[in-house]
């Protein structure tokens, strides 16, 4: 019995447990009681160091495991804290909060109706621009471009996603907003129309790269088989490749929509910040507000109920995007499974 306990294996496990428990305590204290316990932290660091020296392999494995839980932990923390702070806004009067037509900070009336509508309009506009262009540029990159061009186009598309959204917003504000104001002879600068265009460009790289992956993932022999029957390349693509990649392209579109929906700075800089429905409802040249731009423009000065309402907006946004990305993931994994089997 004693022998068993002095066995190295058990020592290893004991040390591991000890460090893990200390880490869990440290983490719990930090999350629940807002304190960062330096002693516990030192214990964890020392214990890890000891473990590393004596049992490198197991220590490494444990640390890697903890690292792999980090993304999930952050996601859960985000969900929980947004929920805690944002749920009260829903609780008061959920129907009014989501569908009412007024947001007046001074009168303390908070409902997200106009912003939800604004998000829908802007996202829809962006999708109309980004979806056809994104998918067809994916087709070009995957199927028509010669190899050297492809090796230039792919990074260029990546770069399109890399230009900071404040820069998009700034250029859009300076050039597009005033141009539209001139062109359409409107008296205001901020509308739903301008940010839609910029958002379309911003959502495009997401769609292109995911769709390109999906098209690329279709085994080449399928297309070759069609080509061997004497059809043109486009016919082969249309009849064989695109249908096989359709769910991946679908996933790409959903991700693109998620991008456009969650994009903040560009919209905030280009939209008119009027927290009311446009009239008529489809007037894309009215100033307006989206969920993201509402939060970005108001959270700095908000207090009390307004903060709750903004957190509620954040929670809503988080949930929608969460659902969108899980959906696209499911679609994508179905696609992968199909090719693995076939």
């Amino acid at each position: 019995m004693i022998e068993k306990f002095t066995n190295k294996l058990s020592l290893r496990i004991l040390l591991g447990l000890f460090v893990l428990v200390s880490f869990a305590l440290l983490f719990t204290f930090f999350v629940l009681f807002q304190t960062f316990n330096v002693y516990l932290f030192l214990v964890v660091v020392l214990g890890t160091a000891l473990g590393w020296v004596f049992f490198e392999d197991s220590a490494a494995k444990t640390l890697l495991f903890i690292a792999s839980t980090s993304a999930g932990t952050i996601l859960v923390l985000i969900a929980v804290f947004l929920f805690l702070r944002g749920f009260p806004a829903f609780q008061r009067d959920p129907i009014f909060f989501l569908t009412g037509s007024e947001w007046h900070v001074y009168r303390e009336i908070y409902s997200l109706g106009p912003m939800i509508w604004g998000s829908i309009i802007v996202t829809f506009g962006a999708t109309i621009i980004a979806a056809p262009m994104g998918v067809s540029s994916a087709i070009f990159i995957a199927k028509f471009s010669p190899k050297w061009l492809r090796s230039i186009l792919k990074p260029a598309i990546e770069l399109l996603a890399g230009i900071p959204s404040v820069v998009y917003g700034f250029i859009g504000f300076i050039l597009l907003n005033s141009a539209i104001m001139d062109y359409f002879d409107i008296s205001n600068m901020g509308q739903y129309f301008a940010p839609s265009i910029i958002l379309g460009i911003m959502a495009l790289p997401t769609i292109t790269s995911v769709a390109e992956d999906a098209i690329d993932a279709v085994p080449e022999h399928m297309e070759k088989g069609a080509l061997a029957l004497g059809v043109t390349k486009w016919q082969a693509i249309k009849e064989v490749t695109l249908p096989s990649a359709s769910s991946g392209i679908m996933a790409a579109l959903i991700l693109g929509i998620g991008r456009a929906l969650g994009e903040t700075m560009a919209v905030t800089m280009m939209i008119g910040h009027k927290t009311a429905f446009p009239s008529p409802l489809f007037d894309i040249f009215d100033p307006g507000e989206t969920l993201t731009s509402l939060i970005a423009s108001q959270i700095g000065e908000a207090s009390g109920q307004a903060v709750e309402a903004l957190m509620g907006a954040g929670l809503l946004l988080f949930l929608i995007v969460f659902v969108l990305s899980v959906t696209s993931r499911i679609i994508q994994s179905r696609l992968q499974r199909r090719f693995r089997r076939g």
Binding site: L75, G262, L310, V321, V326
Partner: peptide, 30 residues
């Protein structure tokens, strides 16, 4: 693998302003 893939995906598509809100309610007071 699936679970971590899904959480990473969700984290990746979470809007940046939501990260800001989270930092505001979670990190700043701590």
């Amino acid at each position: 693998k699936q679970a971590v893939g899904v959480t990473a995906d969700c984290l990746w598509s979470t809007p940046s302003i939501v990260f800001g809100l989270f930092g505001y309610v979670f990190l700043v007071p701590r």
